[in-house]
Computed example of a mutant assay.
Amino acid sequence: MPAPRTPRRVASVIRLHPEQEEKYRELHRSVPQPVLDTLSRAHVTSYSIFLRDHTLFAYYEYTGDDYDADMAAIAADPETQRWWTLTDPCQQPLDSAEPGERWVDAEEVFHLD
């Protein structure tokens, strides 16, 4: 039997507009089930978003075989797109984000198994 695949760990960051914090928290108290289902179908697990000093830090594990295709499927999902119309106005990309980029990847500098 083959050994289980080691998940790909993904972390990203974005700023949260301070005046939008309560709205953002409220939205995430009841993420729509179709959005959660889309993430699961795309092999996203252990997804968490943390907040500190108006900076959001997201972490998830990816267990699939084609990361780019699965991320494209998430982006193409109409329910996820609708969800983003609610969450995106709460966020402000970091200064280091490329034009059109929202959440930016964070570099993993340490991991303990």
Rank of each mutant, 00 (worst) to 15 (best):
R102P: 00
Y24T: 04
D113C: 09
R25I: 10
D68V: 11
A72E: 13
T55M: 09
S40Y: 15
A69D: 07
Y60P: 07
R82W: 15
M71F: 09
L56A: 15
P32L: 06
Y47G: 06
E26D: 10
L112V: 13
Q91A: 06
R41T: 10
V109D: 12
H17T: 11
Y67I: 07
E107W: 14
W84V: 05
G64M: 03
P18D: 07
T55H: 05
A76G: 05
P32N: 03
T63Q: 14
E61A: 04
V44G: 01
D105I: 03
E79M: 01
D53E: 15
L51W: 11
F50N: 05
L36K: 06
E107M: 15
P93F: 11
P34N: 02
D77H: 13
P34T: 01
H28R: 04
W83Q: 02
Q20M: 15
S40E: 14
I49C: 13
S46D: 13
L51S: 04
F57Q: 05
K23Y: 09
Q81T: 02
V104Y: 07
L94Q: 12
A72Y: 13
F57L: 10
Y67T: 11
R41Q: 03
Y60N: 04
P2M: 08
D77M: 04
Q20V: 05
P32A: 01
Y60S: 08
A97I: 08
T45E: 07
C90V: 02
W84F: 12
C90F: 04
A72G: 13
H111C: 13
V10E: 10
R15Q: 13
L86S: 11
D68S: 08
A42W: 08
W84L: 12
W103I: 06
I49E: 11
D113R: 09
V10C: 06
F50T: 11
A75D: 03
D53R: 12
R5C: 06
E61K: 04
T80I: 12
S40L: 10
T55P: 00
E26Q: 08
R5W: 04
V31Y: 08
D37K: 02
L39R: 01
L36V: 05
Y47L: 14
E21Q: 15
E21D: 11
R5D: 08
D113M: 11
A11V: 13
Q91W: 11
T6Q: 07
R25T: 01
Q91D: 08
A69Q: 12
E108F: 09
D53N: 09
E22A: 14
